[in-house]
Amino acid sequence: MSAPVLCASEVSMVFGGLVALDSVSLELHSGQIVGLIGPNGAGKTTFFNCLTGLYVPTKGRVELSGSVLPKDPAKVTVAGIARTFQNIRLFPSMTALENVLVGRHIRTKQGPLSTLLHGPSFRHGERAARSRAQELLAFVGLSTVHDELARNLPYGDQRRLEIARALATEPTVLLLDEPTAGMNPQETEATRQLIFAIRDTGVSVVVIEHDTKFIFSLCDRVSVLVQGRLLVQGSPEEVRGDPRVIEAYLGKPPEEVAEIVEEAENE
């Protein structure tokens, strides 16, 4: 198998005395969709923050295409990792198109001087950025609302706009933090198709999601995080059948609980 695009090895993150992540490893190969599931507070978003440079891991390292990630989120984006946020963080008072144009920021080069002069090269770059942004909006299915303010878009559109904005940075790896949170079944299905389409353009995707059905039908591999540790890692089929996963999500079966209680009482 080829070398992984994104490789996190034994990443630990400690906040004060709290161990949020305990040597979590993850490999993402080109063209793969990897799912990250786990109960609330398992450290999924913390892991994402380590992957995007927002946090510097206490231990372990993250490599993108063989080189260690820079420590500045802006530089990580330049290196090729883009993300969306769990609670949507668009630029609310900018239009949909402008939001995507902000995503083009690092792939365009106009400096202050050429901006002030508005010369031909500036206008050419601006036109190119705009047409690319329009393409991306069309790709996620938002071309009709490009002139709407982001804050006025319906919830599902905002999620898709965030994806378009992330794609505008031309990432090799796209991290999606709960892309279907709060969506109805139709919207969830549309998102699934969108993620497949993104994968088909050659972008590798990591998805955090609570909706296990969504994850199992979407991902090539699934990792389960529980209390900062990697519990299980494998294909959807392997993970789905694993009793430890069921336990982590639903708790122990009643008879086992009864046994534990009994043991505790006997002591």
């Binding site: 995007t52 927002l54 989120p73 330049v78 993300r83 946020f85 963080r89 920021h105 940075t169």
Partner: peptide, 8 residues
């Protein structure tokens, strides 16, 4: 923060 995540 979102601006930084966009590489700005």
């Amino acid at each position: 923060d979102a601006a930084r995540a966009m590489g700005i």
